[in-house]
Design a protein around this nucleic acid. Structure first.
Lengths: 130, 130
DNA sequence: CCGTATCCGTTGCGATACTG
DNA sequence: CAGTATCGCAACGGATACGG
């Protein structure tokens, strides 16, 4: 579906600076490390509870998980469902918007996987020359 | 060229956790706000001097520009050419690797532009419900 | 189980001043 | 012009303790 739409970024045409600023800010927000990992985890598993996410996303603290999930919920990327039972049960899943973001990042994940070796080689070369 | 390669990220197959950690770290490094903006600026204009970049990337401090360019050079994304003249002349341009990263991010830029309104609407809804 | 609240060290980053 | 060096504040983020 993306391929059928017109992509304006190839041109050098001037873009409304305010819109560009907003887009930049949005990317900054969404390109956060934890956001990316939570996104991937939910892409892979569909529906997850808080504790399952905490275990699935290696190294994340409960504080950052909460914070990340709140921000993603606020941005409309994640849907949060509270089941009124004891003990509490809260489920998280991607919205269509969140899923589309995951697809948009596929190219970047792919690039990173394909070029990790090249980047590491470049780093070694750079570091050796002091 | 990317489309002709096998993409493994669609599957739920287990991935070497160490590789995944490296890929994650690389994305975190490269998805930095200033890196993205410098990348776009060099994509648009080809070759730029330090001061031209400073003016082109709105809001960046000289310190962050230096830092960003050094990191990108270390990662093999940017080539730095020093012309031994007075006053000094230093030119920056993307390497093929840097250019390929720019292409990989096209999907994300596109997503952000297309969905900015939706995200802002989601935020308003979220904030109103307190 | 699913959070919130608080403390506190670490880092990020802008502002400023200086150099070849 | 193209940086480097230093300062100082603010934000990030982990650890811990507590609550519905």
């Amino acid at each position: 579906m993306l391929a059928t739409e017109k992509i304006a970024y190839d041109s050098n045409l001037p873009v409304d600076p305010r819109v560009e600023a907003l887009v930049t800010e949005l990317i900054g927000r969404v390109a956060d490390k934890w956001t990316l990992l939570v996104l991937e985890e939910l892409e892979d598993h569909g529906v997850l509870r808080f504790t399952e996410l905490a275990r699935g996303v290696a190294g994340i603290s409960q504080k950052m998980l909460t914070q990340t999930l709140r921000a993603m919920e606020r941005d409309g990327l994640v849907e949060r469902t509270v089941h009124p039972v004891v003990p509490p049960k809260v489920e998280y899943r991607l919205t269509p918007l969140g899923h589309s973001l995951g697809e948009a990042f596929c190219g970047v994940w792919h690039w990173a996987g394909e070029n990790l070796d090249r980047v590491e080689a470049a780093r070694r070369t750079f570091d050796e020359r002091g």
